[in-house]
């Protein structure tokens, strides 16, 4: 036994000494010693890395699939003109008017759809839902002329004041007025709607998970409750509502209103138009954001080119120098 151990120890020690008696000079002072490892260790380490990554991926996907079992139907993605198509080639093929998929980057709102959406909001949604943060002036040259917007505002009754006697008074609206709410406060809204509060729609598309797709799906998501589902009083079954019970009754039916451009007012057409309009209400600055991003890209490219040229210019004398060494011992 002893000779075996002795031989083993000598081998280990000589290997150890061999490894350390010739210190190597590394160009970079990194701690990575992967190059120095034995073949077996390399294979082991690589396999370990792969397995760890695969396990992390598996755990992530399992976690994601767990999320899918809660009773919440997620809306599909729709091709909004201001948001773009999302990996749906068959949908894209059905839309011949756009050859390039640039909607997400430079797509703006569709004025005709906004105009129809405003009609839907005014004639259907405005009975219960307020739109407190949107003013009539925003509509000018977006989807109606200034005269039309003034006429729309004048139809509304605005509470203004106080006047010289300290009383509030009513007057027809002006361009700068915000859209009046159907109820003076939340309590009045709750009483009128059986305890449920119709939310303000100014920011609804950014305030719900799923954005525009969710709002559109919700408006089209009414169905008969399946067997076994108990609904409370004043509750309706909706596929996309969290918990499937919604206080709002289905509001949009085919032919409910008449569009002034002659578009057939089907329920899905109205849902699409009003959702598009509400998306504008939530993010009216989207168009300028997109333009700023576009300009930023152009200007950054130019600045990058200038910086690159200037860097080359500064370092040229060092980069292109040639160093020649002369042997001082040699006689010339």
């Amino acid at each position: 036994m002893a000779p075996v151990l002795g031989q083993f120890g000598r081998t280990v020690f000589s290997n150890f000494a061999k490894g350390y008696s010739h210190p190597k000079v590394y160009l970079s002072n990194t701690s990575s010693s992967f190059r120095e490892m034995s073949q077996g260790k390399k294979i082991l380490l690589t396999t370990g890395c792969f397995l760890t990554t695969a396990a992390a991926g598996l755990a992530y996907s399992l976690n994601e699939s767990v999320k899918a079992i809660d009773l919440n139907l997620h809306p599909p993605k729709y091709p909004w003109p201001h948001k773009g198509h999302r990996h749906e080639p068959e949908l894209l093929a059905a839309l011949p008017f756009r050859k390039l998929e640039l909607d997400k980057a430079i797509g703006l709102y569709d004025a005709a759809s906004l105009r129809r959406g405003w009609q839907v909001y005014k004639q259907v949604c405005a009975a219960c839902h307020s739109l407190r943060f949107v003013a009539y002036r925003q509509f000018v040259d977006l989807f109606m002329t200034e005269d039309e917007a003034k006429a729309e505002a004048a139809e509304a009754t605005i509470t203004d004041g106080p006047d010289a006697n300290g009383k509030m008074f009513q007057r027809p609206g002006k361009l700068a007025d915000y859209i009046p709410s159907p109820y003076p406060n939340e309590e009045a809204a709750r009483v009128a709607n059986g305890g449920a509060y119709p939310p303000d729609l100014s920011n609804i598309t950014v305030g719900r998970e799923g954005d525009e797709d969710y709002v559109f799906s919700l408006l089209r998501g009414y169905a008969d409750p399946p067997a076994g589902v108990e609904l409370g009083e004043n509750q309706h079954f909706n596929l996309y509502m969290q918990g499937n019970a919604i206080a709002m009754a289905q509001a949009l039916y085919n032919g409910l209103i008449e569009y002034d451009d002659g578009t057939p007012a089907t329920a899905s057409q109205m849902a699409k138009d009003v959702t598009h309009f509400l998306a504008y209400c939530a993010t009216p600055e989207l168009e300028s954001w997109k333009k700023y991003l576009f300009k930023w890209t152009i200007i950054s490219t130019c600045l990058f080119g200038l910086a690159w040229y200037y860097k080359r210019h500064l370092w040229a004398s060092l980069v292109y120098r040639r160093v020649a060494y002369r042997d001082v011992n040699k006689k010339h």
Binding site: I106, A111, A112, D141, T145
Partner: peptide
């Protein structure tokens, strides 16, 4: 932007109303 969004902008459709 105007070229890409032609047909969507108010200036393109104002004459329809």
């Amino acid at each position: 932007f105007e070229y890409y969004n032609r047909g969507r902008l108010w200036k393109n459709i104002a004459h329809l109303y």
